[in-house]
Design a protein around this nucleic acid. Structure first.
Length: 424
RNA sequence: GUGGGCGUGGCCAAGUCAGGUCUAAGGCGCCAGGUUGUGGCCCUGGAGAACGAGGGUUCAAAUCCCUCCGCUCACCCCA
């Protein structure tokens, strides 16, 4: 049997209403906050991600779906959305628009990882980005939007973790302090941490290994070593969050896996975890990214949220029951009726926006009725050989089981009035 | 990349530990019929798997051994 590639999934019809719910609420909350939709390509020049995300990150080192196209160009399926949005911002001269530019998108995201619960090689993200302002008021706005979004999905029981990892100015001295702290503890640390020590000291903070956790907890915190600019930004953000009553928890270990983050970083995690992949929405500020990939120096902040994980959590909370499907009118034929009449009657109903289905031909009346019952038909139109010759047709109400004869020409109008009278 | 669990018709699944009675139970779903042109319940019948693949042990393997593949969960990391 053919199968979908490892780590990919079909979203079947039965799941659609969850997805539509998420997408609808996402769009709606974005509209309220003044964010406009952008549709991105599914792949970009590989160099965009290498330069933007950082060569030393796991994503770039081992998770990108990179291929050469027929022209020999190296392209990469989006491993995240932010870099693409920044590329679009630069390419279309959005710095000439009123700042900040507020955008949101939905995109499939590809990362070559071992799949497990809540983690796939292709997943889908809803992302929001505000480009062109360094004001912490925008950080608060993005977080407020994120929280409102989750609330609308019924995911109230989440915790917002925030942290600030500073900017290049404060990170250099902080890195020194961190290394000094770890220097004499190196030999007790795990392999990974020993290599992180020189390559990405910040990552030492979120190691979960029992050998390193206690060390990480006692390590000097980034927020205690921010430069005055970052420190002020951080304080203001916390004040804004408090002013709009957004509860948060400062977690020093939130450092994020991509190199472009500066200052604010945050994650939302459900309190009752479904699976071990707990983060359902995460983001941060990336003031250096746009210039890093060749644009004008532009501060920005945003977040991404995994739709599969959102849906998992919505289902776990049973926050939404399956939607009832619309019920069709089914057209059947008894005796030897010209199939063209079926098609014509169906077309007549559909032109009046009535959900109509024709039963595949060649079935007995019994089978046709079974079919109608199986797809939960509201009415069944029976086109009978004899009735048609006298210009009438039968309409069966599938709920009451009663059947009435009406003139063939009054069909659409009859159904419309019946549907209206049985509504609500 | 590493480790654990699993792999029987479209789905769920018995049987695998104590090999033969398994040319593989049952349920769901699907298709058809239960008199002549009518559903949902019920009844009957039907299609559909050589038991993930390959190799080995044996008189004999879905059942034992080996290899590979796949799925899944966890680690790393992440949405």
């Amino acid at each position: 049997m053919p199968r979908a590639p490892r780590g990919t999934n079909d979203v079947l019809p039965a799941q659609q209403h969850y997805w539509e719910h998420v997408e609808t609420e996402a769009e709606s909350i974005c509209k309220i906050f003044g964010f406009d939709r952008i549709r991105l390509p599914m792949f970009e020049d590989s160099s965009l991600f290498v330069r933007g995300i950082g060569e030393a990150t796991d994503v770039v080192e081992k998770e990108m779906y990179t291929f050469l196209d027929r022209g020999g160009d190296s392209l990469t399926l989006l491993p995240e959305g932010t870099a693409s949005v920044c590329r679009a911002y630069i390419q279309h001269g959005m710095h000439t628009m009123v700042q900040p530019v507020r955008l949101f998108y939905f995109s499939p995201i590809f990362r070559y990882e071992r799949p497990q619960s809540g983690r796939y090689r292709q997943h889908h993200q809803f992302g929001v980005e505000a480009l062109g302002s360094e004001d912490p008021i925008i950080d608060a706005e993005i977080i407020e939007l994120a929280r409102s979004f989750l609330n609308r999905l019924g995911l109230y029981d989440t915790t917002l973790f925030v942290n600030s990892i500073g900017c290049p100015t404060c990170r250099v001295p902080y890195g020194k302090i961190l290394r000094e702290y770890y220097q004499d503890k190196l030999d007790t640390m795990c392999q990974d941490c020993q290599s992180r020590y020189s390559r990405a000291p910040l990552r030492l903070l979120d190691c979960k290994k029992p050998t390193c956790q206690p060390l990480a907890l006692d390590a000097p915190h980034t927020i205690d070593h921010l430069c005055s600019d970052c420190s002020q930004h951080w304080e203001q953000l916390l004040n804004y969050l408090s002013a709009i009553n957004i509860p948060f928890e400062i977690r020093h270990s939130i450092v994020r896996g991509l190199d472009y983050y500066t200052k604010t970083v945050f994650e939302f995690q459900p309190n009752n975890e479904a699976g071990s992949q707990t983060t359902i929405l995460a983001g941060g500020r990336y003031d250096g990214l746009i210039s890093q990939i060749g644009g004008p120096s532009t501060p920005a902040i945003g977040f991404g949220s995994g739709i599969e994980r959102l849906v998992m959590n919505i289902q776990a909370l049973q926050a939404r029951s399956p939607a009832d499907n619309e019920r069709p009118v089914v057209i059947t034929a008894a005796g030897s009726v010209d199939q063209h009449i079926l098609v014509q009657k169906a077309a007549e109903l559909r032109s009046q926006n009535i959900y109509t289905t024709i039963v595949p031909s060649g079935k007995s009346m019994k089978a046709q009725m079974r079919y109608a019952g199986a797809i939960n038909a509201r009415f069944v139109i029976v086109l009978g050989e004899q009735e048609l010759s006298s210009g009438v047709i039968q309409v069966k109400d599938m709920d009451s089981g009663s059947q009435e004869e009406i003139s063939a020409t009054s069909l659409p109008g009859h159904i419309i009035s019946r549907l209206q009278s049985t509504q609500s």
